[in-house]
């Protein structure tokens, strides 16, 4: 672990300037991911700029939606009554993640930016293009149970581990960012990027850009939404696959839906093809399976020394069907 400098500035502008000025600087949120990476040698920043004291920690009404300060703890966000009522998928995604202690520390800004749990990424003795560009990808042909089936590249097959991000992707959230050149807002769905030939970049954020808030739009369909996370043990494990879904059924037809997947791609995977298949369909297992099939048409499972991850295709199909079935039943 490399020695580093530490600063805790009083305002966001100073923090952004401090990080922007040093290529080896990083923001420090709750630290539940970054501090692990310091210990493991996965991240070796020369300067940590602690933003926990300066980011907004409130959740406010925003034109029918909600503006969530980037400093809001995951635990507080999950407990917010407006979130629970209007966006249950988000509360459930948060509560399915990590542990109570971690959720108390983890922040709204840090959670979507947590890095992959790829075992090789976290082990500096193995090659990894994401950690050390150009060194190769040890995961390909290795232990791939938790790796991607969608959107991977020959350079990286990692998955994004955040549950919260899958919900935000389904909810059409917006991300507010302060950078060296000022503020900008981007769609949450544009935040993360596929690995391509530059897996070292998880997101489109530039160095020095600070997430200051996440905005949830008014979204009536989200009132009937759910997050279903599948994993081997009942708690405290990352998703093998997960489904964030919202469903609106009017007169026995699906009139609106939001679907996103976790555990299957380098990004939270918004399943727009599935949503298109669902629109206008009668809720039924056939329709749900057709939606999954459309989304997974390009899925490419990985072999692996641990048996690989081909099981994710049937597993995700069945998890999606089960989640939509339950939501449709709630509607009825």
């Amino acid at each position: 672990m490399r020695p580093f400098d530490y600063q805790a500035p009083a305002d966001a502008g100073t923090a952004v300037a401090a990080v922007a000025a040093r290529p080896d600087a990083a923001f420090l949120g709750g630290g539940t991911n970054l501090v692990d990476h310091l210990r493991l040698g996965v991240a070796e920043p020369g300067l940590l700029v602690d933003v926990t004291g300066l980011l907004p920690t409130g959740i406010s009404d925003d034109g029918g939606g909600l503006r969530i300060g980037a400093g809001v703890a995951n635990a507080d966000l999950a407990a917010d009554s407006r979130v629970r009522r209007h966006y249950p998928v988000l509360a459930r995604a948060l509560l399915s993640g990590a542990s109570g202690q971690l959720r108390n520390m983890a922040t709204t800004g840090g959670n979507p930016l947590q890095r992959t749990r790829c075992l090789y990424f976290q082990d500096v003795t193995t090659p990894c293009n994401k950690r050390s560009p150009g060194s190769g990808c040890a995961a390909i042909g290795g232990a791939t149970r938790q790796h991607a089936i969608l959107g991977a590249s020959e350079h990286c097959i990692a998955t994004h581990p955040s549950d919260m991000a899958v919900a935000l992707s389904a909810l059409d959230a917006q991300v507010e960012v302060l950078g060296p050149d000022g503020e900008r807002t981007l769609a949450f769905g544009e935040l993360h990027r596929l690995p391509g030939d530059a897996p070292e970049r998880d997101t489109v954020l530039e160095h020095g850009e600070l997430i200051t808030a996440i905005v949830l739009p008014p979204l009536p369909v989200a009132a009937r939404s759910d997050y279903r996370k599948v994993r081997d043990r009942a708690s405290y494990a990352f998703a093998l696959v997960s489904v964030a879904a919202a469903l609106e059924v009017t007169e026995c037809r699906i009139t609106d839906s939001r679907v996103a997947f976790g555990g299957v791609a380098h990004t939270p995977w918004r399943a727009r093809r599935a949503e298109r298949v669902l629109r206008g369909a009668t809720p039924s297992d056939e329709a749900f399976h057709a939606a999954a099939a459309a989304e997974l048409a390009d899925a490419r499972p990985q072999d692996g020394v641990d048996g690989g991850n081909a099981f994710k295709i049937p597993l995700l199909t069945r998890t999606l069907a089960g989640t939509l079935r339950d939501l449709a039943r709630q509607e009825a």
């Binding site: 749990r117 075992l119 090789y120 976290q122 082990d123 003795t125 193995t126 040890a138 042909g141 290795g142 232990a143 149970r145 081997d232 043990r233 009942a234 708690s235 405290y236 494990a237 990352f238 020394v305 641990d306």
Partner: peptide
């Protein structure tokens, strides 16, 4: 999870080596 290519256990921490939780 032993990776025969490297000769080591790749899930070598308690986040990834799963023991039963309370739940």
């Amino acid at each position: 999870l032993f990776d025969p290519r490297t000769g080591h256990v790749v899930n070598h921490d308690l986040a990834e080596y799963h023991v039963p939780t309370q739940a």
